[in-house]
Amino acid sequence: MSRKINAVVAGAGRVGFEAVKRLRGYGHDVTVVEPDQQRCDAVADEYVATVICGDASDPDVLEQAGIENADVVGALTGDSGVNLAVCVLAREFDEEIRTVARIDANSQERYGEFVDEVVFPERAGGRAATNEMLAGGVETLEDVTGDLDITMVRVEEGAPAANRALSDVRFPAGTLVISNDDGQRIAGPDTTLEPGRRYIVAVEPGVADEVVNLLRG
């Protein structure tokens, strides 16, 4: 079974665009639906996703984005009503699809009853801002990294690097395996990448797809 995911992202604003770039960085297939022609061109310039110009809550447009064959839909427009509509519509096309909707207020957590997952970008932003303003002390790890991604990767059975010692695996430059299985100790050359266990790996965005390939197949 292929681990490559087929994703549809509705809305290529700041949140949507960022999500598209990250998904693509991990080597997944992404189709973007965006009504604004200028935003469409901006995404096309980055060359990270196929772009459908149109309103994602229009069934015809969503169908053009290949929603029937998608594994997951991320409705990330600035309008939570539209996002809910997109997710519900996507379910109509494909019952199995995983749906993620962006909400724009805490009070909309009830949306979670209709979609698989809700995202509230303002909270993540607020948390990062708080960390900065408190200047050090306690900071959550994800907010101190710049372009670097600190990722937790579960090694898959049958992946190229599974069951191999770190000294036997050549990762691309821009990779650092930090912890051994389950994060109790710093990884060394003799650390074995056991399937089913999780490892903390620091990666630069450009090589994330290769690292994921090696560890997950």
Binding site: L166, P172, A173, A187
Partner: peptide
């Protein structure tokens, strides 16, 4: 240290 990457990216 082989946990560091060695190959240069494209």
């Amino acid at each position: 240290m082989s946990s560091h990457g060695e190959r240069s990216p494209e």
